[in-house]
């Protein structure tokens, strides 16, 4: 492949990416516009919260616990060099609330629920359920896509809160029970240094944005998957990769914004 071909291929790829972005935005606009003013089938929404939220709980609980424990352990060994072990709870809490909570929850959600969403919708395309709905004059965007989107957006911040709490307890277990720090100092230092209005809420805003983006992309890739088995697999991979990268990019942008660049 000579240089010209390479550049041409690169250009084509760029155009495909651009088109993909545009299409996904149109998709988002379409299903929101069609669904937002109409009656909502709450039963469907609940069902989806169960599938997306509750089923993600085991992953979130385990991951949260271990992350809390690791941060506490690593933090302790570094802070010990400065004689600043008392600051461990502050380190743990601020790391978890500001960054680890929202980002790890979102990434785990992508892997667990995002890929499941893409696969489910993609499978619907393969088994032609979606075209069948359209034939029956049922709007698949309203019936299928929107309830899943709504439940996903609700679930992500809630999962983040649960992750945060579990991580703090995991850190507590290591810091106080394993490493022997004073329990009173642990909680009071944490309380004194974490501001709910800024640290915790900013983390929740981030997770809300992640929820909006991840669920949208998962549904889009599923909806526009090539209706073959391989196509669904490809779509699922795309969801995971693109969402993960976007989470990290958005996290950086929001952090810079929140810290006042």
């Amino acid at each position: 492949m000579n240089a010209v071909t390479a550049i041409v291929a690169f250009g084509q790829w760029g155009i495909i990416v651009m088109c993909g972005c545009g299409q996904s935005v149109l998709f988002l606009e379409k299903f929101i516009r069609r669904s937002i003013l109409n009656r909502c089938r709450w039963r469907d929404v609940f069902a989806q919260v169960y599938l997306l939220g509750t089923h993600s709980l085991p992953v979130i609980l385990v991951a949260g616990g271990f992350i809390g424990m690791v941060v506490a352990l690593q933090g302790f060994h570094t802070l010990q060099k400065f004689g600043a072990e008392a600051q461990l709870s502050q380190l743990l809490a601020l790391s978890v609330f500001r960054e680890l909570g929202p980002v790890m929850t979102a990434l785990l959600y992508v892997g667990r629920a995002g890929s499941a969403l893409t696969a489910e919708i993609g499978l619907m395309q393969v088994t032609e359920q979606i075209p069948a709905m359209e034939v029956m004059a049922i709007d698949p965007l309203r019936r299928v896509i929107f309830p899943r989107y709504l439940s996903g957006v609700i679930s992500v911040p809630i999962l983040t809160l649960i992750f945060d709490a579990v991580a703090l307890w995991g850190g507590y277990y290591i810091a106080v029970i394993w490493l022997g720090l004073d329990v009173g100092t642990f909680w009071s230092n944490m309380k004194a240094s974490v501001l709910f209005n800024t640290d915790v809420l900013n983390g929740l805003y981030k997770s809300f944005i992640f929820g909006l983006v991840v669920n949208w992309l998962a549904l889009y890739h599923g909806y526009t998957a090539i209706p073959t088995a391989a196509g669904v697999g490809l779509a699922t991979t795309r969801t995971v990769v693109i969402s993960s990268l976007l989470i990290l990019m958005l996290d950086f942008m929001m952090t810079a914004f929140m810290l006042g660049v």
Partner: peptide, 19 residues
């Protein structure tokens, strides 16, 4: 799920941070 979320929120708001 919702109860766990609510408990986490209350715990965080009252025990882990300062308003």
């Amino acid at each position: 799920f919702l109860i766990l979320g609510l408990l986490s929120l209350l715990f965080i708001a009252f025990d882990a941070s300062e308003l």
